[in-house]
Amino acid sequence: MADAATIQCECRLEKVNKIYQIGGRTVSALTDINFEIQSGEFWAIMGPSGAGKSSLLNLLGCLDRPTSGNFHLCGQDISTLDDNGLSELRLRKLGFIFQSFHLIPELTVRENIELPLFYLDRNSSRNRQRAQELAVLVGLDDRLRHRPSELSGGQQQRVAVARALANDPAILLADEPTGNLDSATGKKIMDMLLQLNERGKTIIMVTHEASVATYARRTLHMRDGRIDFFS
């Protein structure tokens, strides 16, 4: 597997605001966010419900664009990119892990893991091999032909991790990766993320469990859409 540490990819946010508009009403989800994330770091984002953690992560994941302010990712100014450009960035630099796994139920484990490679349009026999390697990495190489519904929550999340790694991303983004898991299974996933971070992957993770946040080297605390403090 390629060593992600060699890929330099920092995040820089300057005076970032995110305002949602719903039927004339405006909701300020993020206000005046300034911070930087260096390559290879492991960040946790914490805060009470509605603090704007997911909004921030969606921004960092290029699923959304700031209403105002500057956001640079991997040296690119996000505001200059169109929908295609953002997709391209997600495809090549980012990997997502979601609270409710978000596997595609109709596809097998292997097909789910291969999905990002599908959009990278790579040779399909090499894709198979890569899916196999990743399945070995997350310890599910005996389940490649199974459907997600035939797996436990922990196993499903491991498939999701494998899928997030398929395109060899510089940054892994995880929104409450252990939120739907019991603490023992959650710990397994966190150990896996920690290992990946030690191999050089930048990890940004939203959580509201303090025990999970201890895995991260830095924590960003949010409140009412603002950065409360770092720790």
Binding site: G61, L63, D83, E88, R90, H102, L103, Y119
Partner: peptide
């Protein structure tokens, strides 16, 4: 599913 594919990097 469309959301998942888009998050993973599928273009329009």
């Amino acid at each position: 599913e469309i959301g998942i594919r888009r998050a993973i990097g599928a273009k329009r």
